[in-house]
């Protein structure tokens, strides 16, 4: 009787494990299917001329040059704004702020709430503040500022985690030598935490690179027939170009949308790969 019961419990456990494994397998299959679908549709349309050509009414002549340039412009500026701001805020919260004070608590609550605000709402903010109020128009600058605000909370929180991992004994060692706070930050704290900060920042930036909604809200164009030359030029980015092509009824445009997705994914994956390499290096050192 008892043996039978144990057998039944073991059987149940095995079944449960089977269910869990199939859930994991489902996720993996979905990822593979998604990649397969994109490559099946898009790979044959990928060519050098696709990358160097402007968009066109004719799918077979259309390319992503202006969108790729727009993405690179926008993301470079986003990095320029978001990383110093994010790391600076994290430094303030971890190294300067009094953790008990109401001001710090409000700051932290505010940041975690901002992290949950939908991307499209940042687009409305960008539209009202950067495009209209500051009159930056529908420019790369407006787009980059909008994306910078969008990823700021992510960079802050991940940088805070990285800063928290710095052993307090190292900081004390520096302070005990009469070294000032900022000198301790640049001499000990940042060198120790930079891999972690970079990992988090790269992941945040790659998120910004894949965003379309906030940039559509600020009025980034769906069609740009020239290469942007300054931050005040109007622009489009890869995700918007892909959206534009995907939402056309003709199948040819969906094919080149897939080719555009491949380019976007290659960019994102290489950024992620860098982040993973950095993190592994970091973890090994921590062990």
């Amino acid at each position: 009787m008892n043996k039978k019961l144990i057998r039944r419990r073991r059987l149940k456990n095995a079944l449960f494990q089977g269910v869990l494994i199939s859930i994991i397998v489902f996720s993996i299959i979905m990822l593979l299917l998604l990649l397969y679908q994109v490559f099946k549709v898009g790979f044959s349309h990928l060519s050098l001329s696709f990358i160097t050509s402007m968009p066109s009414r004719f799918a077979d002549r259309a390319g992503i040059a202006s969108a790729l340039a727009g993405s690179i412009w926008t993301i470079s500026l986003t990095i320029l704004f978001a990383i110093p701001l994010g790391v600076g805020t994290a430094l303030y919260l971890e190294e300067y702020a009094n953790k008990q004070s109401w001001w710090t608590k409000i700051l932290e609550l505010n940041i975690s709430n901002l992290a949950g605000v939908p991307a499209i709402v940042y687009g409305m903010l960008g539209l009202a503040v950067f495009v209209r109020f500051l009159n930056f128009q529908r420019s790369i600058l407006s787009g980059a500022l909008t994306l910078a605000l969008l990823i700021l909370p992510v960079i802050i929180v991940s940088s805070q985690e990285a800063l928290k991992s710095v052993p307090s004994t190292l900081k004390e060692g520096s302070y005990a030598l009469g070294v000032s706070k900022w000198q301790t930050i640049t001499g000990v704290i940042l060198p120790f935490s930079i891999p972690g900060i970079l990992t988090g920042s790269i992941l945040a930036v790659s998120r910004a690179m894949g965003e379309a909604a906030p940039l559509i809200m600020i009025g980034a164009a769906g069609y740009i027939g020239f290469m942007p030359k300054s931050p005040l030029d109007s622009f489009t980015v890869l995700p918007i170009q892909i959206f534009n092509w995907t939402s056309r009824p003709q199948a040819e445009f969906q094919d080149i949308a897939a080719a555009g997705i491949i380019v976007l994914l290659v960019l994102l994956l290489s950024m992620n790969a860098i982040a993973i390499v950095l993190r592994n290096k970091y973890q090994n050192r921590m062990d």
């Binding site: 299917l33 998604l34 690179m209 894949g210 965003e211 892909i242 959206f243 969906q254 994102l268 992620n272």
Partner: peptide
């Protein structure tokens, strides 16, 4: 092995999921 796969799944832009939904 599995965690990076999940992270990859989370890192794919929603525009790509949109394409996948519509065409697959």
């Amino acid at each position: 092995i599995i965690k990076p796969i999940l992270e990859l799944l989370a890192g794919i832009p929603s525009i790509v999921y949109g394409f996948f939904a519509l065409t697959f």
